[in-house]
């Protein structure tokens, strides 16, 4: 299994790129919900796909997961998962406050996830001189089998993933979701090369 093995400067650089992306994604979320979002410093960790799927399975019959593929230049691509706890997906529906007939809760969660994912990744891509396109977002059942089946359908191997834990706290309600980016090995190497290029300028 390949390792990210980021040194301190690379980690700091990646963290800052992610901070900027998260800030703009939150701004979009705040506008969409017409509220204020309180941001925390996001945590970034490398996780093995196996351990991640095990984690999800511990919350079986629980989380809602929205998955969306992304594709950039230079082999930078992957799959972004937004993982909601059940309690939080209920709150989210309250917060979104659509009229009952307008859209289902599932559709609302997909909408919201897509805003977060595409804004985050667009801003991330821009900072590393890249540009993303996306597949349609899909709501998966939060069970281990649904997520692992979905990942197995992808055309690349998911030995390791970058997990960016982002907590969005909305003024009156609070909900948490994790954004997890599955990035194949080649793409990770490309991202590291870009980070090194940015760091050389300093």
């Amino acid at each position: 299994m390949s390792e990210l093995n980021l040194n301190e400067d690379q980690q700091d650089c990646l963290q800052e790129i992610i901070n900027v992306a998260m800030g703009q994604a939150s701004d979009q979320l705040a506008r969409f919900l017409d509220t204020f979002v309180y941001l925390k410093v996001p945590s970034i960790e490398q996780v093995s796909t196996l351990s991640l799927i095990e984690t999800l399975s511990n919350n079986e019959n629980s989380a809602a997961v929205v998955s969306q593929g992304f594709f950039g230049y230079e082999g930078i691509r992957g799959e972004a998962l937004l993982v909601y706890k059940p309690k939080d997906s209920d709150r989210l529906a309250d917060l979104l406050g659509y009229e009952p007939d307008e859209l289902s809760v599932e559709e609302q969660i997909i909408d919201l996830s897509s805003i977060l994912t595409t804004t985050f990744l667009n801003v991330f891509a821009k900072q590393i001189d890249n540009q993303m396109s996306y597949s349609a977002p899909r709501l998966l059942a939060g069970s281990q089998s649904a997520v692992s089946d979905h990942l197995a359908q992808q055309s690349f191997n998911w030995d390791l993933a970058l997990k960016v834990k982002i907590t969005y706290q909305v003024t009156d309600y609070s909900f948490n979701c994790d954004m997890i980016l599955f990035i194949p090995e080649l793409a990770i190497n490309n991202i590291k090369a870009v980070i090194d290029r940015i760091l050389e300028e300093f």
């Binding site: 901070n19 900027v20 998260m22 800030g23 703009q24 939150s26 705040a30 204020f36 941001l39």
Partner: peptide, 8 residues
């Protein structure tokens, strides 16, 4: 800051 919300 990266937190660009107008309210902030």
């Amino acid at each position: 800051s990266a937190d660009i919300q107008p309210e902030m």
